[in-house]
Computed example of a mutant assay.
Amino acid sequence: MKAQRSKAALLLTTLTALTVLTTTALTALTGATSQAASPYGKSAAAAGLEKVGDFGSNPGALSMYRYAPDGLPKKSPVVLALHGCTQDAATYFEGAGWQKAADDGKFAVVAPQQEQANNAKKCFNWFQSGDTDRDKGEAQSIKQMVDRTVADLDADPSRVFITGLSAGGAMTASMLAAYPDVFKGGAIVAGLPHGCANTVAEAFTCMNPGASKKAADWGDLVRAENPDYSGARPKVSVWHGTGDTTVAPMNAEESVKQWTDVLGADQKADATEKLQGGTTRSDYRNADGDVVVRGYLVDGMPHGTPVKPDEGCGKAGKHFLDTICSTRHITADWGLGG
């Protein structure tokens, strides 16, 4: 089983690299040079993260890192931040500005880390049902990290949130589908709809050019994860750059279709607003008038997480793009602003 996962993951990441080189040519080549010199993720300790060694059976063979601000009160919220391909826990925690956000908002951050033994490019395996279904593989490992943190810190189990970039964004969507009883909210950054792919070939197509389905069909893929579940579901925001050639912007539209259907809103935005960095925010309300889905489109932005270093929000670099502080908006949407 392990060998099959590794082989499939290697093929997917090879195809991904070919896509980037074909569609972004010179940009991708120069970006590779920048990445080699990147200061991010030199060590988890340098980023302020603590490694947690024993957090359960860990069927997905992930590593767990965690940050808890000094003096964190009991019953504080927990945020999970999932890195993208070729990154690690420290890279994403530091680059997206999660330490400052946690210090300001008084919450703990859990940073799951993919390992090369599972995926050659350290992508979360969002395209394999054995890693995205409830109580299986990587999904179960991430849930165990939540349980360990709630127990260790006496955190608030009713205020657990999740976000991630790219493959981490796709895994975020799957965690929201698999564990609607665990998460209060989620933010999918340059990710994909849950259930878009179950094979390497499907994953390649989903990433670029993207796959289109009816909203109800997308919603059914989420509901199928817990067919008997009737409780509250997490609110969702979807972030994407219109210049993304790695995960096509079409995926943002399809993700909005998926989650508006699941959360009882239609696909027409009830309100739109222009924000910093060429960002358009669209709100989708349910029948009670609550905003349950938010879409953030950043004009011209390529693949990555939006940050704003001169406002103390993250660090610009490969896949961290100086446009708008997504972390601040995400935490504000969750009611966690400092």
Rank of each mutant, 00 (worst) to 15 (best):
P249F: 03
L263N: 04
F161C: 06
K213T: 01
G137V: 03
C206H: 00
I324Y: 07
Y179D: 00
T246F: 11
C196T: 04
L49V: 10
V52M: 10
T149R: 05
D156W: 12
I330G: 01
V238N: 06
Q140R: 10
G105S: 09
Q140Y: 02
K315P: 00
S230C: 01
A96M: 11
G317T: 08
L29K: 03
F107D: 07
V256Q: 07
N208K: 11
G41L: 07
A96C: 12
K308C: 04
A108L: 09
A332C: 03
A211K: 14
Y40D: 13
T199E: 11
N119F: 07
Q140N: 08
R223H: 06
D70L: 08
A151P: 04
D310H: 05
D152W: 07
G300H: 12
K143Y: 14
A201K: 13
T91A: 05
L275W: 14
S63F: 00
G264D: 05
G56H: 10
S212I: 15
K136T: 13
G31V: 05
L153N: 07
A68W: 09
E202C: 08
A8Q: 14
P209Y: 08
S43W: 11
N58P: 00
Q267C: 07
Y65A: 02
Q144N: 08
L26I: 15
K184Y: 02
N58R: 01
T23K: 14
K51C: 07
T19P: 01
V20T: 11
K213D: 11
D299R: 14
V222T: 04
G97V: 11
Q35W: 10
L165P: 10
Y296G: 00
A232H: 05
G71A: 09
G231W: 08
K315N: 11
S230W: 02
S43A: 12
R134K: 15
Y296F: 15
F107H: 06
F183Q: 09
K122W: 05
E94H: 08
D228K: 15
M145S: 08
G195C: 08
T242N: 06
R134D: 00
Y296M: 03
W259M: 10
A197R: 00
K214Y: 01
Y229D: 12
P69R: 10
T13D: 14
A90V: 08
P306D: 02
T272Q: 14
S212L: 06
T199A: 10
Q114T: 03
T327K: 03
A90I: 09
V238F: 08
I324W: 02
G241I: 02
E50C: 01
I324E: 02
Q144S: 13
K274W: 03
R294P: 00
K213L: 15
P157S: 13
A117H: 05
Y40F: 15
R134Q: 08
V189P: 09
C325H: 03
S212P: 00
R5T: 10
G56C: 09
S38R: 01
I188W: 06
A224K: 14
Y92P: 04
S326Q: 12
S38I: 05
A111H: 06
H329D: 12
D131Y: 02
V78D: 11
D228V: 08
A47Y: 07
K121A: 14
Q114Y: 05
T331N: 00
G314I: 10
P306G: 03
F161Q: 06
A215R: 07
A178N: 05
A187Y: 01
P193S: 13
A215T: 09
R285Y: 04
L165K: 06
